[in-house]
Structures are given as C-alpha cells and as structure tokens.
C-alpha cells in the first residue's frame, strides 16, 4: 500500500520536473511549446551516451544532461523560437510539433529507435525497508532531487530579482523594457531553464519512463495534462497536479489493472469539470 504511494510519488515527481518547464513557457511566456518533450528526450539521450558509452558516473551525467538540453534550448530559442513569440497559438503549435517530428527522426537515425536505458550504478539499485515500506534507492533519489528543484524554483520565481523581472516582462513587455529590463535576455534565460529542467527530467526519468525516439509524442499528453490540471501560472500548481496524477496512475494500475491506463484521464476530467482553470487558477485574467 505505502509502497504504491511511494512509487506513485516518484512517478509524479518525474512528471513534475518534465512538465514544469512547459508550465513556465506556457504560463509565463505564453508560448505553446509542444516540442518540450524533445528537450527531455535530448537530455535523456545525452545521459545514455555519457553513461553507457563514455563511462561518465551517473550522478555527474545528470547535470551534464541538463546543461546540454539547456544549451540546445538557447540555440533554438535564439534562432527559431524568437520568431514565433508574437505569432498566434496555432502557428506556435504547428511550428513546435514540426520540431518534434524532426527531433524524433534525427534521434532514430543517429542512435536507433529501440528503447534504451541508462545504466544505473549499484548503489542506486538497492532497496530499503523503512517502517515496513519497501523503497528503491533510485526512486528515493528521484524524489529528493525533484523535491529540491520544486522548492528552488518557487523561491527563484517568487523571491528573487530575476523572478520579479520575469513576471514584469511577461505582464507588460513594453513597460518592462521602458524600465530597463532586458526582456529578450530574460526570456532566453527562462527558456534555457525550462529546457534544462526537461533535460534533467529526461535523464533522471529514463529508468521509469523508458527512452525511445517517440518519447516526446508519447509523453506530450502527460505534460499537457499536468499543466492544465495544475494551472499554468505557478510552480506549486503543476507540482501538486503531477503528484496527484502520478499517484492516481500508479494506484489505478495496481488496484484496477483492467482500467489502469484510463485513470489518469478520469482524474483530469474530474478536476477540469470542478475547476476549469486548473487546481490553482492564474491570478490575472490570462
């Protein structure tokens, strides 16, 4: 019972790290970035190459994967995304879904399309019994890293100068520019942060989620559910939504294996009927 809860939380945490970047770009920058999963996949494959082929230690590969995904994010933001900020949402959707297909084919060509895993070091394969709850070390690590990230992000966005500048830049770019805030750079940094988080999530979650070139498409729905259910304006909303969905998904598969795959959608439906704006509605009318 508690083991299921534990597994569900680990799964939810992974969903959170993967989706939070999307919540930032969608909620704060108002850009529909369906290619978000492609950054997660990039991070995952960087992890695979580093750990399995080059023998980099697992824990060192995680931040490297995040940095790599963030760098890819920076390059794409400067060259491509910057042109779609002002466009309609439909244009953004079409543009980013195109990116997803290109990314999938590129990975499939370069690394093959079979499912791959990152080799876990021995100490992460252990299991502990705590108060009768059996927990895997790897899932503990996932929960620890993701929990820390959630707190860090909340602080970053609500308590720091960067956070208030970002919110100002989003609320009214013209006035923000007038006040001397470099809106373009803020957006670039935010985008890089979102992509980096996705990359970290991809590398960290590869063991649970599996990694193949269809990753961005397979999980796009999950990311969007997390962001819709959580509401796209805070960190806490998607965090809670991801936990709720993770636990519901794992518990559903455990207790109702026949209907397991549908539980996550039912939860989304119920939440959206009760709270169409998501669990935590945006403060402004956005």
């Amino acid at each position: 019972m508690l083991t299921i809860l534990f597994d569900g939380i680990a799964y939810g945490m992974i969903l959170f790290v993967l989706a939070v970047g999307l919540s930032v770009t969608l909620g704060l920058m108002n850009v529909v970035n369906l290619a978000h999963g492609a950054f997660a996949m990039a991070g995952g494959y960087v992890g695979v190459v580093l750990v399995n082929r080059l023998g980099v230690p697992y824990l060192a590969a995680l931040p490297l994967a995040a940095v790599a995904a963030a760098l890819i994010g920076v390059v794409l933001e400067r060259t491509l995304y910057v042109h779609v900020y002002g466009k309609s949402h439909l244009d953004q959707v079409l543009f980013t879904i195109g990116l997803v297909f290109m990314a999938s084919s590129a990975v499939s060509w370069a690394l093959g399309s079979q499912q791959v895993f990152i080799e876990l070091p021995g100490f992460l394969r252990q299991r502990f019994e705590v108060f009768g709850v059996s927990m895997g070390a790897y899932r503990l690590l996932v929960i620890g890293v993701c929990g820390a990230l959630a707190v860090g992000l909340q602080v970053l966005l609500s308590r720091t100068r960067f956070g208030s500048r970002l919110r100002a830049a989003v609320d009214d770019p013209v006035v923000a520019r007038g006040l001397g805030i470099e809106v373009g750079r803020i957006f670039l940094l935010t985008f890089a942060l979102g992509s980096g988080l996705a990359g970290l999530g991809g590398a960290l979650g590869a063991e649970i989620l599996g990694l193949d070139p269809n990753f961005p498409l397979k999980f796009m729905v999950y990311f969007l559910i997390v962001v819709t259910v959580g509401g796209a304006s805070s960190i806490f909303g998607p965090f809670l939504a991801a936990l709720l969905l993770g636990v519901a998904d794992v518990a559903g598969k455990y207790y109702l294996p026949a209907a397991g795959a549908f539980v996550i959608y039912s939860v989304m439906l119920v939440v959206l009927i009760l709270r169409p704006q998501g669990l935590f509605a945006p403060r402004s009318g956005r």
């Binding site: 597994d7 799964y11 989620l209």
Partner: peptide, 8 residues
C-alpha cells in the same frame, strides 16, 4: 513504460 504497479 512503467511496469512497477503491475509487478508490485
């Protein structure tokens, strides 16, 4: 992707 609940 996640066999955990079924295995459990």
């Amino acid at each position: 992707p996640d066999f955990a609940p079924f295995l459990q």
